[in-house]
Amino acid sequence: MNIFRLTGDLSHLLAILILLWKIWKTRSCSGISGRSQILFATVYTARYLDLFTNFVSVYNSVMKIIFIAAAFATLYLIYVKFKATYDRNHDTFRIEFLLAPCALLALILNHEFTILEVLWTFSIYLESVAILPQLFLVSKTGEAETITSHYLFALGSYRALYLLNWIYRYYFEGFFDLIAIVAGIVQTVLYCDFFYLYITRVIKGRALKLPA
């Protein structure tokens, strides 16, 4: 565990909690893509099946359980409890166009052709693009609430910090996982446009509105 990895995990945890808190506090999931949340729930479920087969540490297991529980709690809030506030008319990104290629790629490019390994690989590929429906929703409405942009910033930072963690681990531990690194780069690049807007607008106290 190095500082990049730890801050990455905390940033990830913070993102998930900000989202739950925002929906709960405002009693509304407006501006949040339920489709991205379906993809994230799929990602955690596919990746953390090793909770049943492999024990790494208490930290590892607790974080995994929190991520899975929070993902399904978020889905419950969006699709059941605060269903009336869900922005379904704007949340129209076709997730099958992400799910199918990721599944296919996981079957072809993986470390080992076993069920758990292919599911892990699928989750890595899917996570890298899972935010697209959310970014699509923001671009469609042309704006995001400030709390939603904090959520996106924390979520995007997490994989960027993991990239630093992988650079660190490569130099100091000789560790590298090409699948995770390439997917992590793709994931981080997808946020770049958003990071720019966040830094130039939200931090200066303005609302995140896309340039017309």
Partner: peptide, 10 residues
């Protein structure tokens, strides 16, 4: 020894 099998990352 394949180090990628030890999945300590989240």
């Amino acid at each position: 020894e394949d180090q990628t099998r030890v999945k300590d990352e989240l």
